[in-house]
Structure formats: structure tokens, C-alpha cells
């Protein structure tokens, strides 16, 4: 039953992030659009969902809005939607930064080659922005996994919800909550690890590892280790 909850938590987080990536991309492009009202709407969207706490939003959507509007949303779709909205706010900022991080000259060169704006975005800008954006997206997925626990308050039978049920049933709260904590931890580590591998693949080279600075030792005293350089085309 715990594993069932675990699987549901993972599926919810994954679905939410997929939606958030799509929405985030749209919002990011809106923020970079030449048309000012579009930029403002996107800005407000970003600020709103970055500022709001998930617990506040889910309670409001599920208990408040649903009741007020008379619509009955099932807990799981409501949870996925809320997580997606929240994460799209963060991801749109990440995507914007990633797109802006690509050198201006790249766009100019693509245009000079005769590529259309859509073509140049797809085959020149996006692949390069990917390297900047990927680690942040990974972090966002990790956050979504952790945040999915909050969906237990609206009755989504995910990991924490199941844990609570079992802990009460068996009167073994310490054991069950510890196991649940461990499962989240494993999920978080595995996802971080997978994203690091993906990142390395994209970089076509082992990432530059900074030496661990030693505040009270002597190793940090000698700098001169290379820092990650400019973004290179990944194709």
C-alpha cells in the first residue's frame, strides 16, 4: 500500500512537471514577446505562482473555488493541476534565463543563414538553452515529488496519505513516517542522479568538478582550476 502511494506520488509529480514544462515554455516566450501586454500577463502569472504557497493554493482550489463555483474536481486532477501551475511559474523564469543566456550572435548567425525564427529557435537556440535549463528542471521535478505530499490534505491517496492511514491503524507512527521519509529521499536522490547523467550526456564531456574548497585547510588556497566555460553548441 505504501508502494502504491509511492507510485501515485511519482506519477503525479511527473505529470505535473510535463504540463509545467509546456506551460512554462509558453509563458517564457510570452515574457520575451515584443508585445507589451503579453509580457505583463506573463510577468503577473510568474510572480503569482512563484509567490503562492502550494498548501494555500490547493486548499483554495479544492475547498474554496470548487465549492463556490459548484464544480466537483476529483482530488488527483486537482492536485496535478495545482502542482503544474506552481511549477510552471518557476520554470518559465528558468526558461527565460536559459534563452537569454544563449549568445545574441547565435541568433544573428541563424538568421543570416536564412532560418526562420521558428527554425532558429528549434535548431539553434533551444538546444543551447537546454544545457542551462536542464539542471533547474531536474530540481523542479525533485520539488514536485516533495510537494506531492501536501496533496494528502485533499485526500489524494499518495505516499503520505497512505502512511498516515497505516500509522494510525497500526499505532506505529515513528516507523511508518521514517519509512515514508526514506522513500522520498530515495526518489529525490535517484531523480537528481538521473538528471546529472543526462546533463553530462548533453555536455558531451564530463562536467568540470570544482575542487571542494576547504575553509580551514590549505587546499582551497590554490585556485586556478578551470570554471565551466561558455555554452557550446550541443550538436
Amino acid at each position: 500500500m505504501l508502494l502504491g502511494g509511492f507510485r501515485l506520488a511519482m506519477l503525479i509529480a511527473l505529470a505535473a512537471i510535463v504540463l509545467a514544462v509546456l506551460a512554462g515554455l509558453v509563458v517564457a516566450l510570452m515574457r520575451l514577446s515584443p508585445w507589451a501586454p503579453l509580457r505583463w500577463i506573463a510577468f503577473v502569472y510568474t510572480q503569482l505562482f512563484r509567490g503562492i504557497a502550494l498548501y494555500v493554493l490547493i486548499i483554495w482550489v479544492y475547498f474554496g473555488l470548487a465549492v463556490a463555483a459548484g464544480v466537483n474536481v476529483a482530488p488527483i486532477p486537482a492536485g496535478i493541476l495545482t502542482l503544474a501551475l506552481l511549477n510552471s511559474g518557476y520554470l518559465s523564469e528558468t526558461f527565460r534565463a536559459g534563452i537569454l543566456a544563449v549568445d545574441r550572435g547565435q541568433r544573428e548567425a541563424a538568421t543570416a543563414l536564412g532560418l526562420t525564427p521558428v527554425q532558429s529557435f528549434r535548431s539553434v537556440i533551444a538546444p543551447q538553452a537546454m544545457r542551462v535549463v536542464l539542471p533547474a528542471t531536474g530540481n523542479q521535478l525533485v520539488d514536485a515529488i516533495k510537494d506531492s505530499a501536501i496533496l494528502s490534505v485533499i485526500g489524494v491517496p499518495e505516499l503520505l496519505h497512505e502512511t498516515q492511514r497505516l500509522a494510525q491503524f497500526y499505532f506505529r507512527p515513528f516507523e511508518f513516517y521514517t519509512i515514508a521519509g526514506g522513500m522520498y529521499l530515495v526518489a529525490v536522490f535517484v531523480v537528481s542522479f538521473l538528471f546529472r547523467i543526462l546533463e553530462r550526456r548533453l555536455a558531451h564531456e564530463s562536467p568540470v568538478r570544482m575542487p571542494r574548497g576547504r575553509l580551514f585547510g590549505w587546499r582551497g588556497v590554490f585556485p586556478g582550476t578551470p570554471t565551466p566555460g561558455d555554452i557550446e553548441p550541443t550538436r
Partner: peptide, 13 residues
């Protein structure tokens, strides 16, 4: 790595 929401229950219960 552990969600704060879960940690809260872990501490309290």
C-alpha cells in the same frame, strides 16, 4: 531531500 510536510508529521507524531 525529505519533504518538510512529511518531516513535520515525523517530528510531531
Amino acid at each position: 531531500g525529505v519533504p518538510l510536510f512529511v518531516f513535520l508529521f515525523w517530528v510531531y507524531y
